[in-house]
Structures are given as structure tokens and as C-alpha cells.
Design a protein around this nucleic acid. Structure first.
Lengths: 338, 338
DNA sequence: TTGTATGCGTTATCAT
DNA sequence: ATGATAACGCATACAA
């Protein structure tokens, strides 16, 4: 037979019709037992479930998705999950989506411009019911593509005035300025920045530097680090700017890992923290909270961000609406390094 | 029309037939241009690409998957990505899969027994072409389900003699014993363990304790921590066992985060490291390498593990074969805490 | 509450 | 190198 000759895929293809036959009902009834059990009488449902069990039926959502035009998949695209900055929101987002019966397609775009574009294109091919993206800066073509697709999109970690669709984030430049104000209020006049070169880190840096210069402060040292940057990058960079630090400098780091590295290296060099070097990190990771000395940091609740993004998306998927722009609180947690 | 009345899904459904019409070819030719361009003459291919561009066609892999019975998706199921233990392999695995044209479905199973089962079942519903699982301990039903599915499976982070299909990992009990030997060789007689309660951490603990007792060592303190455990858990636990530490104890920690917490707290309490308290962590995360003092740890290359898992899977997906069991090297990196 | 008819958008297969 | 045809396995829409 033609059909039988077809390549035997995996999944010893028990299909919905087999279950239906076994249970003595129509395929549609089996489908209902699976998707809308409340519309099936308990007795037939039981019979169907028995047949499913007996045959070891595993529904095929690919077929279901083609028919219903809903994939029940969400694509989540972040630069990396090697940093808590993104692993936290992805973790909470995925958890929330699982609870709602969705699966998450993980896309890692790296920090090379252009990769994200390709990834978004590729992922749209799978017809996700929704998208989680990092940042609101996408190429015009992709923005158009997303609109055409008509798929709900949440952008996180950013605060554009013109999100593609929905946004859950905060203003990085504002945070930078806030940190500057924090230092200025404590009498600092000399400043330094260690930050990665990614767009959002650059925004924080910009906000920080602008505010400092507006208030007559002096930027005595600066280093742009690779993204994602880590503890070692912080140590190396601090080593490189050590000479500029005395008599007293306030340092803003692009992430808590960098801040931890800077503090560690400063102490190794005999630079007093916070007396000679005051340090503020970013992210408020466990490392900042639980290391010694605990590090002052900008608290951004990545877990909450992921959860909120999921909520928004789910609201829209349920046919409802969700806020276009949610700014999540981000404040300075003062600790022993300032 | 019936068809037109159907719920308008997203994706202003330009389909392959539209492209075909526009280009004046059969749909199958468009499909070939997309999937096997080498089988199409360059001139028609160019015409087709032009049509695709003009119409903004985005292929539908759901339909393609149904027809070809290959989803070009791999499911990766790990307990969490909040720990570098799993985020590293997932990162490298996903990167490798992306490069090969596959997408990764991320499943987070947590540490509650039973969750993984449900997740595997759910994910099989999407007909992944392959699976990455954490550990080789699955319920008999799931193992059967996986075999029936006929899908290639790689299990990581474990060294069962009877992997479901393929395995890339190492023997945790052996590592525990290795750490014990390491300490014993340095004259230690008093030992302590701080480890999470997950199955693999328990294996390491078991191997450690058994070896110690076999060699006449004494376990003076032990704490089981929540999984995944962090820096704070390490600090708290060390605080709790501080009295048992003098005059000299060797501590094995279930993860570098815990080890870092323990070292931090020990120093805060004035316990000399490594003189009074020798510490060995697990995972060899950047934190162990770059903190002060650098922490002795068991090095496991999570990135390599993920990459190797991807390689195996890809080999099988390409119709080839791959080793059933790959043990990756895991050795002690001696640093300043021992 | 249950069943019937039909289409979802693509690719395998065979034919030319 | 290209085309015609027939599935792929399910859910929508409607009827009973």
C-alpha cells in the first residue's frame, strides 16, 4: 500500500481515529475529551480515556496546531541564559507558561547584532502564539514582520515609548542617572564606570555620565567590557583603572558580577571599600546580597519581570487586553560598598 | 465563503500556493527552493525567491512538520536554568542546535519528583525530533513511552549503566569518593558535607561519605540543603555547623555557590580557611575561580556536556550513530581553600 | 451530548 | 528539473 509504505516515523502512530474506534465513538469526541472535557458525558469520557490508556495514545499537537491554527507555543528570545539577568526572567516566564499549558521555544540571540533578526524570522516559521523579546530595538523589517504576523509580543528589559506591542521593563538611562544622584548626594566628585557594550548597558552608562557631568562631577576612568561580562572582567578592569581611583572614586558597574569582581580586586590591591572606592552594581543578584561585603546594587526583579510578561501574554491569548507598557520598579539597594 | 469565514488567524496567510502562483511554478517547486535548493535550477529559484520576497511569505513549519513528520524541534528538559549547573549546558546545547537549524523547546522540571514525567509526556505531544533529559532516573512508564516514541534521547549529568538511549555525563558517586581521597591524602580525618537533596547531589554525598568511613574518617557535620541551593544556603548552613569545625575539618559542598557561601561565612566567623576549614566545591563556576580566595572545586565542563549532547543527537538525526555512553572528565581543581 | 464533513499548509512519492 | 496527487492527524463549523 502507498500509505503503509510511507516512511515510518517514530511514534508508533496510534492516532485519534484509532482511539475513537477502540472506544466506539467519533474522533471528535476523543478530541473533546482531551481539550474540552466539560462538554463530554462522564461515562463516554471514561470509556475514551480507557481506550487512550490501552493504546498508549499520544496526541499530535502538530496536527492539532495546523488545524486549530494555535500552536500553544511561545518563543522567548534573549541574548543568553548564561547571565542571571536573563536566566531569571526566562525561568519565571517559562514556569508561568507551563502552568498555563504553553511550551516555550528558547531562542538565544547572543550579542551580535543581526542574530536576533534571523532568529525571529526563523521562529515565526513555527507559528508561535506569542513572543517574548529582549529590548525594543529591532530592525524595521522585523517590526513589520511582527505586526504582519499579528502575534502578541512582549518586550522586556527596556522602556521604549514605542514598544512593538507590549512592554515590561524600565528606563535604563534613568537608572544610570539615579545612581549618579545617589553618589552625588554622598559627596562624590570623582566617578568611574565599568560596563558591557550591549545597548542597554550603554544606556545606563549614558544616563550616569550625563548626570555626573551636568552636576560638575569628573569621570576619571571608564572601561567597556565584553557582553555578557563576568567576575573576571570586573577584576581585570578594576586592575586597569586602579591608578585613577585614589583619593576617592565612585564606581558604577554594569552588572553585579562585574561589581563583585571590582570589589574583590580592589581589596586584593589594598584599596579600601567603600572609603576609597565606592561601588554600586546592577541587578541585585544573590551574589551582591550574600557576598562579603554585601554590595550596593540596583534592584531589578527579573523574576517579576518574567512573570509579568507571561501574565500580559496570557491575558491577550485569552482574548483579553493587557497594558501596553508596564514599568517595573528598580531602586538602589544600599549596602556596605557605598 | 466557508473558508473565508474561518477565524482569521495571525499571519496574513500568504501560503506556498500563493508564492507558486506568483512565480508561475508548482507549490512543490517552492518547497524545493526552500528545503533542497540544489535540486532547483538557479533561474527558477531566483524567480521563486523574488515571489517570496514580494509576498512576504513566511513558511509554516507546523504544516511542514505534519507532512514530513519531522518537527525540527528538540526538547531540552532540565530542573532549572537558575543555576549555572544547567544554564551552561542548555546554553551550549541550544547554540549548537540553532546552528544546525533546530529549535529548542525548553522544559523546566523543578525538583519536585513527578514533574519531569508530566513534562516529558506533554512535550512528546509536539513530536520533537529528539530529547535532552537531565539524569537517567525516569519512571518506567516514561522510559517505555520514550522507547515507543522512537525518538533519540540524550541524558546528561549522570552516568547510569543503562541509559534510555544515549548518555553524556559522569559518575557522581565516584566524584564524591575522589574528593574524599583528595582530602584524605592531605591528612584530613574530620569531614563535613553540605549538599542539596536532589538525586545527583545525594550520589556525590554518598560516594564521599562511604569512602571516608571506609578509610576511618569521621563525619562531624552534615546538612541537606534545598535544591537548587545558593550562596545564602551555604552561609546559613556553615553558621549552623560552625561549632563542629575546629580544630580542623574538610568540607565538601554540593555546589560552588554553597562553597562560596561557606567560605564567606567561615571568614566572617574568624574560622581560618584553609587551615581550620578546608573547602571543596562542585561545578567549577566562574565564582569559584575568580573569588578571593579562589575555591577548590570539582571541574565539570557543562558547556562541553551540552555541546557533546548536541553532537550526539545531531549525528543520530542525520541517520548516523553516536556513542551510547560518553563520560566527560571531571577532576579536582585545587585552589586556595584546600 | 455526539457525529459528519471539510480544510489546515505543507511535503513524500511517483511521474514526466 | 519540475509537476500532480495524496496524505500528514487533528479541530472547526455545523447538523442532529
Amino acid at each position: 500500500m502507498h500509505v503503509a509504505a510511507r516512511r515510518r516515523g517514530p511514534f508508533a502512530s496510534v492516532k485519534i481515529t484509532d482511539v475513537a474506534t477502540e472506544a466506539g465513538v467519533a474522533p471528535m469526541t476523543v478530541s473533546r475529551v482531551l481539550n474540552t472535557p466539560e462538554r463530554v458525558s462522564e461515562t463516554t469520557a471514561a470509556r475514551v480515556r480507557e481506550a487512550i490508556e490501552k493504546l498508549g495514545y499520544v496526541p499530535n499537537m502538530i496536527a492539532g496546531g495546523l488545524s486549530s491554527r494555535r500552536s500553544r507555543m511561545i518563543a522567548a528570545i534573549v541574548p543568553t541564559i548564561a547571565s542571571p539577568m536573563f536566566s531569571e526572567p526566562v525561568q519565571s516566564f517559562t514556569d508561568a507558561m507551563h502552568r498555563a499549558g504553553y511550551h516555550v521555544l528558547l531562542g538565544l540571540s547572543g550579542y551580535t547584532p543581526g542574530t536576533e533578526d534571523g532568529l525571529i524570522r526563523a521562529v515565526l516559521t513555527r507559528r508561535p502564539d506569542g513572543l517574548l523579546l529582549t529590548g525594543a530595538a529591532h530592525s524595521p523589517e522585523v517590526k513589520r514582520l511582527l505586526r504582519d504576523a499579528g502575534v502578541p509580543v512582549v518586550e522586556i528589559w527596556d522602556a521604549s515609548d514605542t514598544p512593538t506591542d507590549m512592554l515590561v521593563g524600565f528606563d535604563h538611562a534613568e537608572i544610570g542617572a539615579k545612581v549618579a544622584d545617589f553618589f552625588l548626594a554622598r559627596g562624590h566628585r570623582r566617578f568611574a564606570v565599568l560596563t558591557a557594550g550591549d545597548p542597554r548597558a550603554r544606556l545606563r552608562r549614558r544616563g550616569f555620565i550625563d548626570r555626573i557631568e551636568a552636576r560638575g562631577g569628573v569621570l576619571v576612568a571608564e572601561r567597556i567590557l565584553p557582553a555578557p561580562s563576568g567576575i573576571r572582567d570586573g577584576r581585570t578592569a578594576l586592575q586597569a583603572i586602579a591608578d585613577q581611583i585614589p583619593p576617592r572614586t565612585a564606581l558604577f558597574c554594569g552588572s553585579d558580577l562585574v561589581a563583585f569582581g571590582a570589589v574583590t580586586q580592589a581589596r586584593a590591591l589594598g584599596i579600601a571599600v567603600p572609603e576609597t572606592l565606592a561601588v554600586c552594581g546592577f541587578g541585585d543578584f544573590e551574589l551582591a546580597q550574600a557576598s562579603e561585603p554585601p554590595i550596593t546594587s540596583v534592584g531589578v526583579d527579573g523574576t517579576a519581570m518574567g512573570r509579568q510578561a507571561a501574565e500580559n501574554l496570557l491575558a491577550r491569548l485569552a482574548g483579553g487586553s493587557a497594558p501596553r507598557r508596564i514599568l517595573i520598579p528598580a531602586g538602589i539597594r544600599e549596602r556596605a560598598t557605598t
